[in-house]
Every structure is written in C-alpha cells, then in structure tokens.
Nucleic acid binder design. Structure first.
Length: 103
DNA sequence: CCGATGACTCACG
DNA sequence: CCGTGAGCCATCG
C-alpha cells in the first residue's frame, strides 16, 4: 500500500459535519509535508470519498477543480451543518469543526 | 523509463 | 500583503 491508499483510509474516517486539513491528512498518512500530494490524489481519484471535508489550513477552501469547484464544496459542507463564510476564498470556522482523529 | 507537476504549508524577505 | 523556494511522492506524458 502506498501513500495515496493511506490517504484514502484517513479521509474515510472523517465524520459528517467535521473537517480537517490537507496537512493533517498527510501527517496521519505518514508524511507531514506531503499536503500537496493529498490534494493531487483527491483531484484524480475516482474513489467515493468525503473529499469536501478536507480543506486548507486556516479553514480556507483554495480548491480549483473543474469537476468539483469551491462552490460545490461549500454547498456540501453547509448541507452537513458546517458554517462557511462567503469570502474569497471561502472560509470555514475550522476551530469549531476540526476533526480530532481517535486513532 | 524519467522528468515535470500539483485541491498544500511553512520559512524568509 | 505578496513572491519565492523547498519538501513530499504518485501519476502523467
């Protein structure tokens, strides 16, 4: 199993209504500085994952993906009860919704 | 096969 | 606030 497989496993564990950052996912997957790899993986994988619960540090949604634009991510998060400020870029109150991994 | 690339983050100026 | 460079590593062409 490689890095991306572990990334997928980590993301599957994020509960509805919670979010975490690329950096955190990378760290849990074993490479704290491979945040960019997490994004690259999510941009290409076809696996069904709660990708919208992964945001940038500080709560910013800096995603640029033609299939899943930032607007869609914001909509998905709001549908789960997460409040997102309509800024540019959109900002989640991450201090309040950040996921605390139990394993 | 091998170099370029990227939904990030941090340090520095 | 903005730009630059480095670190990470699976995938793409």
């Amino acid at each position: 199993m490689g890095f991306s497989q572990r990334v997928a496993e980590v993301i599957k564990q994020i509960p509805k209504g919670k979010v975490t950052t690329y950096g955190t996912v990378a760290a849990l997957a074993g490479s704290p500085r491979a945040a960019l790899m997490v994004g690259r993986f999510l941009a290409r994988t076809k696996i069904d994952l709660p990708w919208h619960r992964v945001i940038g540090k500080g709560g910013y949604i800096t995603i640029v993906n033609p299939f899943h634009p930032a607007e869609e991510q914001v909509a998905l998060l709001r549908s789960e009860g997460v409040r997102v400020k309509d800024q540019k870029p959109p900002k989640v109150e991450i201090g309040k919704y950040q996921w605390h991994p139990s394993e």
